[in-house]
Amino acid sequence: MGIAVVDSTLFTSVDPVVLAGSMCGACGAHVFPAMDSCPTCSSLDVTRVGLPTEGTLWSWTTQHFAPKPPFRTDEFAPFSIGYVDLGPVIVEGWLVGKTQWTIGEQVNLVLAKAWTHEGAPVFTFGFEAVT
């Protein structure tokens, strides 16, 4: 049985988890999620690629109040989000496992439960500190 995710187009692989970005054949720019044109140089020569799964924490915040809909959760608790420098691109995502972080920390891509749908967990991507 497969793993349910918030949006399957975000991933090239769910197990192991790898994010799907796109790479521009003309200028080399990487973006996430994958797009069918390059926002840097407007080229249409773009290829879907898997992004690195390890990176450095570039910035972070902890969300202390529940966002309005369309935010969806089983039960709100403060959670962290951040930008992670993966090398070719800096990606925004959940930071899981704690709520106080330090810029420059090494982090790894993981799956994190976003909510429960019909009794089964639905996962999004996040990053956790390398221990």
């Binding site: 915040t61 969300q63 966002p67």
Partner: peptide, 20 residues
């Protein structure tokens, strides 16, 4: 997915930008 996972929040954007 971006809104559903709580990332579409203007206050978090301001926080992420000034933290950096």
């Amino acid at each position: 997915w971006y809104g559903a996972t709580g990332m579409m929040v203007t206050t978090s954007y301001f926080a992420l930008k000034i933290a950096r």
